[in-house]
Write a protein that binds this DNA or RNA. Sequence first.
RNA 1: GGCCCGUUCGUCUAUCGGUUAGGACACCAGGUUUUCAACCUGGUAAGAGGGGUUCGACUCCCCUACGGGCUGCCA
Length: 467
Amino acid sequence: MSPKPVVTRFAPSPTGYLHIGGGRTALFNWLYARGRGGKFLLRIEDTDRERSTPEATAAILKGLTWLGLDWDGDVVSQFEMKDRHAEVAREMLAKGAAYKCFSTQEEIEAFREAARAEGRSTLFQSPWRDADPSTHPDAPYVIRMRAPREGETVIEDAVQGTVRFGNDQLDDMVCLRSDGTPTYMLAVVVDDHDMGVTHVIRGDDHLNNAARQTMVYQAMGWDIPVWAHIPLIHGPDGKKLSKRHGAVGIEEYQVMGYPAAGMRNYLTRLGWAHGDAEFFTTEQAKEWFDLPGIGRAPARLDFKKLENLCGQHIAAMEDAALLHEILAYLEAAGKPALTDLQQDRLGRGLYCLKDRAKTFPELIEKAEFALASRPLVADEAAAKALDTVSRSILSELTPRLRGATWSKEDLETILTETATAHGLGFGKLAAPLRAALAGRTVTPSVYDMMLVLGQDETIARLEDAAA
RNA sequence: GGCCCGUUCGUCUAUCGGUUAGGACACCAGGUUUUCAACCUGGUAAGAGGGGUUCGACUCCCCUACGGGCUGCCA
């Protein structure tokens, strides 16, 4: 048992939608905390006032909510903590762990130009690092970290292992901008410390940053959290995620009709493994999820596998929860709301629909029989099944159906006898029946449709088709 | 350029010095069938390349190649 309770956080910057990679990072943090009775916090990294928007924040919250990731406490705005950040910067100044740098952007740029030209390191070396305060001009300045120039900074990463950085590779990063606002490098450390974050699980694009941030922890004498830098997700082509493939906002996946449980399962499994476990519940994921199980290589998105898992989750869901999520999907996708009758029929029909669909649109397509109202308009393929001969068989069928008890056994008897009487295989009879009942060729079994529709509606539809 | 990370079937991965390198998705063939989905049986398919270390390397070390990241008063 760990002495400290686990506290993780997800800290997106509100400069765009929450894409699938961010969603997975959030999910990993959530699973880790929730599986250990810890806390999962949410902090919006909005210190970049130029690029941060409230719309992006709203989209992120919406995406997390859809994914089913709940956070503890209020959402923290990093920007609102700016006074605290400045306070820490001044404290570092007082300790000699930081210094005022009066170099202008132009001077820094010139330094880099020259360094590049001479083939030296372009890491900026401020002339103010060791300047006597009495020489300080009355001009804007930034506060820079006084980073050690010798030795190395070592980070122990739960995913990447021990990673060493020569301190000559790390520059004196800016902690406080000349306008007094904090930079990300300072703000993350201060906030993570203040919020009591024990485990930092984030994209490995931050691996290098961890070394810099370690210096701040050390300067302030704070405990360093457990680092876990996870590989990024790539598109199906192995390239960085782009708009073309998968980099859309995570809520787009709801619009595409993937159930959240399937999404969680897939995302958890992407880059993490628990032996041969492929299909599992969120409860199991919470129980099993750990840091050593995370892989070190970037993983590609595979929609086929996503669909496969989603299909399994749809089949495994309770009818009530499934119906609820389907209704939410319809709304998110901008489809018309269902009437009470449609909801009722869909709900009662789920038992025979949910094991034949991988996504909600697919399920809805197969649920046409339950959603449509008379008179049905058969689609092209279905219309072909309703030829003259077939229609006459249907009209011959209805009187028998009127006398049926409407048990599955009874219906089976009637239909197989009818088929046999005409020297037909059951399939030959099922096709026009299916067309009459659903107006489609892709549906649940004809028996199930009859059961869901009930005797009156079934007979009415058959009469419509036979007419 | 410098620094850092990565590389097992098409894809996600298991393996944590000794396995006929396993599973899942996808794919192919056959079976079943009331359309779809599913299901059953079988099959194709992998350790980037080169050096070491070792009785023995996918596993450890080095080099190369190829990907990726960082190198901002962005996060």
